Simulated scan of single mutants.
Amino acid sequence: MPWEENQNSLSYVDKALAAFNEIMANSRKDMMENLNRAHKGELFVLHYLAVCNREVLPSELSAALQASTARISALLGALEKKGQIVRDIDKSNRRNILVTITEEGRNRAEAEMKEMKNRMVRIFTDMGEADTIEFIRLTRLFSELMQKYSPQEEGGMPSG
């Protein structure tokens, strides 16, 4: 139910949760399209490799992207077929595989990052300076509070 139509008896927290859930539900379709567009993690792998600018072990990618080694292996296979990464055996330790981004992969990562930046520029321009500053302030506060109440953080939300 829209924020404005909530019953007056609901607290502002209940109203905020309802509004947030509504926003997320309406945005879910767009988010899923964006996930599919990003080929379910390929761009994250390419961006990481482009920033590192060196050979990387798949286990490092797994840790950095917080993804299973099986997921990383599938991503690397897809990227290798597209010619965007190369996997080679480590000459100093033949049990290791080293992953390197290709020029084609670097070009894709740069193009996608440029497109994302351009989209953000358009969004912030449409929002205007005051709303953008407020959005950043509130997003930072929300993120800090999410960290504070994370189950991993001491003093976080009690389990059960």
Rank of each mutant, 00 (worst) to 15 (best):
G156T: 07
L141D: 13
A38D: 09
A25Q: 15
N36Y: 13
V86G: 00
S59V: 11
L49Q: 02
L35N: 06
A111T: 12
E104T: 09
E134T: 14
F20E: 04
R122P: 00
M1L: 06
H39F: 07
H39K: 15
R95K: 09
M157N: 08
G105R: 02
H39L: 07
A130K: 12
I85W: 00
D88Q: 15
E134V: 13
Y149A: 02
M120A: 12
S27R: 15
A130V: 15
R106N: 05
R140I: 12
A38V: 03
V56G: 05
S143Q: 10
G41S: 03
D131A: 11
Y12W: 14
N107Y: 02
A74F: 05
L17A: 09
E4C: 07
G160Y: 09
Q84P: 05
R71V: 04
M127R: 04
E5W: 11
K40E: 04
D131R: 13
M24R: 15
L10T: 04
L138K: 13
D126I: 11
R54W: 01
A25F: 15
N26E: 12
E129V: 14
A18W: 02
R37P: 00
S92G: 03
N21R: 13
A111K: 15
E144A: 05
T69R: 11
F135E: 00
N21H: 12
I101A: 02
T139D: 09
A63N: 10
L138V: 11
A74W: 06
M146T: 07
K29H: 08
E42Y: 03
E144M: 09
L138W: 04
